[in-house]
């Protein structure tokens, strides 16, 4: 299995990027050359140099340090959203697939409704109602994300519902809840968990977008989307202020995508 991973160069790139981001997030205070919030008006708008690798922003903060600390915010949002929405989506999907009938109908129509809002539109309106903050963006994204897992888990449950091991559990008179949590969910969860690892990247992307339009992290927080948003004011004088936070988002999302793709190929070689 590990040899298969190493055969795909793109997966290796993905593992490398994700590992890098996790290391930066954990050791940010030791790795970052400066305090991400330290204002130094005497050093504002400095271009990249050996002193400030990624330059400084409009109040002289070191952009590299801000990006390094930004990994913490992005990873936290990505993980929290997936950790909230994945169990909800999984349980609802398993119940829908296993119980069937009217319960299935209700749950699936509910997912239809949530999925009829394209892109970040639904999370935007929920976050706008809750008020701008990172916690609210996190909540808004979790509320809009679970239906994807419900759909995936439901279809894998349908494919194992009449398997022998489920039938035998029923035959020995196991409690339906026990069947659901001990037999069905563990055996139906693989495809959805691969999706969840891909989603870590997409959640980070969506959260950056919401911060960009003023809903998520608020200045002076070193969140990448918020940094990009304020970089527009100084675009004419400081290309670096816009370039590097965007690259950070791109590489993070790319890392999780490559890792997720690699995992999918591993578990489902047909996809290649």
């Amino acid at each position: 299995m590990s040899r298969r991973i190493l055969q795909s160069p793109l997966t290796i790139v993905g593992i490398f990027l994700v590992a890098l981001i996790i290391i930066l997030a954990i050791f940010a205070p030791w790795i970052a050359p400066r305090d991400p919030l330290e204002v130094n008006l005497g050093q504002k708008l400095l271009p990249p140099s050996s002193e400030h690798w990624f330059g400084t922003d409009e109040v002289g903060r070191d952009i590299l340090s801000r990006i390094i600390f930004g990994t913490r915010i992005s990873l936290k949002i990505g993980l929290m959203v997936v950790l909230i929405s994945f169990p909800i989506g999984t349980i609802l999907g398993a119940v829908a697939g296993y119980v069937g009938g009217i319960v299935d109908q209700i749950i699936m129509r509910l997912t239809d409704i949530f999925l009829s809002f394209p892109g970040i539109i639904l999370s935007m309106s929920i976050a706008a109602a809750l008020g701008p903050s990172i916690e609210n963006v996190l909540l808004a994204l979790a509320i809009t994300w679970w239906p994807w897992y419900t759909r995936i888990v439901r279809s894998s449950v349908l494919s194992i519902r009449s398997s022998e091991f489920i039938e035998s559990a029923k035959a020995i008179g196991a409690n339906p809840l026990r069947i659901l949590f001990k037999e069905i969910i563990p055996n139906a969860i693989a495809p959805a968990s691969i999706q969840a690892s891909l989603d870590l990247g997409f959640v980070i992307l969506a959260a950056a977008g919401l911060s960009f339009i003023g809903l998520g992290a608020q200045p002076p927080s070193p969140e990448w989307g918020a940094m990009l948003s304020s970089s527009r004011e100084i675009l004419r004088d400081a290309w670096w202020a816009a370039t590097f936070p965007g690259l950070a988002i791109l590489l993070t999302v790319l890392g999780f995508n490559l890792l997720g793709d690699g995992m999918r190929d591993l578990f489902d070689p047909k996809n290649r």
Partner: peptide, 22 residues
């Protein structure tokens, strides 16, 4: 295609603006 999917569109917009406009 991989980069296109992973890239924040609003960032690409800013970079294009920087290059082709400014």
């Amino acid at each position: 295609a991989l980069i296109g999917v992973a890239m924040p569109a609003f960032w690409l917009g800013i970079i294009l603006l920087l290059f082709f406009y400014l």
